[in-house]
Design a protein around this nucleic acid. Structure first.
Length: 286
DNA sequence: CCTTGTGTTCTCCG
DNA sequence: CCGGAGAACACAAG
């Protein structure tokens, strides 16, 4: 479940590895995950030089030198972007021969092959993710639907207060909606609500000023801490080198059903809130 | 049957 | 009847 910290970890890593590199060819295993024509997808990308890996919420978009089009990559729940260089190369492998240039994993769906010999594998066990080439207009349209980035100034306490004041939905549902705040998913919704001492099903408008302030800080703190730990590997997430994220060691409630609460020792409970599995401590959260 | 991020569709309410 | 909010469902695979 890559959320903001996981996608940010991947983005910064790949930016270091692939900025300025040239795409030589693209090998497509499962065309269903490439939106639009796969022939156009391949022909557009061939020879393109990576300008930058960018992120908005949980969405990665790659810009290219001398091009006004972008490659969107959404990992959804089980997507991975795995970089490999040098090792595991297959002799004669090239997408033009319908042969990949590197060893595929069980769930590899697309491989980008670079001129310097490196490959970038898009893996996705559950095939919910997608890749798409879009022009600037479409990119802007998509990006404009996202709420503020929670780690930027635009996510102000004022904005957060206004957001919550007229909503009867559970606070967790408000946090999960990408149009409200970009990048929070199930893990960080539960964790930030625990940090702030707020029960996930409380109507958003029932939060007091001091609770809103606590939650605003908790969201930023938990996301920053997780980025420092290179994200949370609960099951599927891997960084660009195939490594796990360490933040799972610092989770307080997510996935801890029936385990003792780290604050009070009473068992963590789990229910379904906002349609999602939700973890909380009835004693520490009000 | 369960899991989840997102897009779509349905339903409710003023 | 309209619009918006929120809930419910669809998707896929293991």
């Amino acid at each position: 479940m890559p959320e903001l910290p996981e996608v940010e970890t991947i983005r910064t890593d790949l930016n270091k590895k692939l900025k300025g590199e040239t795409i030589q060819s693209v090998f497509i295993v499962l065309s269903r995950q490439v939106r639009g024509s796969t022939a156009n997808f391949k022909s557009f990308l061939r020879g393109k030089v990576v300008d930058k890996f960018n992120r908005r919420g949980k969405l990665i978009y790659i810009s290219f030198e001398n091009s006004d089009k972008f490659l969107l990559i959404h990992l959804k729940m089980t997507g991975q972007l795995i970089y490999c260089k040098g090792d595991n190369l297959i002799a004669g492998g090239h997408s033009d021969n319908n042969k990949p240039s590197c060893e595929l994993d069980k769930h590899t769906r697309v491989v980008f092959e670079f001129k310097d010999g490196a490959s970038l594998k898009f893996n996705d066990q559950r095939t919910f993710g997608y890749l798409e080439i879009v022009d600037k207009n479409k990119l802007d349209m998509i990006l404009s639907k996202f709420g503020p980035e929670p780690l930027k100034k635009e996510f102000s306490l004022e904005y957060f207060k206004k957001l919550l004041q007229a909503r009867s939905a559970p606070i967790k549902a408000v946090l999960l909606n990408q149009e409200n705040i970009a990048g929070i998913g199930n893990i960080y919704a539960d964790e930030s609500l625990f940090m702030a001492g707020i029960l996930p099903w409380r109507p958003a408008l029932s939060l007091t000023d001091s609770e809103i302030k606590k939650l605003h800080k908790a969201i930023k703190d938990v996301l920053r801490l997780s980025i420092k730990s290179r994200g949370t590997t609960f099951n599927n997430y891997r960084d660009a080198d195939g490594n796990r994220g360490d933040f799972i060691k610092k989770l307080k409630v997510f996935g801890k059903n029936n385990e003792p609460c780290p604050q009070c020792g009473r068992p963590i409970e789990k229910n379904k809130t906002a349609g999602r599995g939700t973890h909380y401590c009835l004693h520490c959260q009000k």
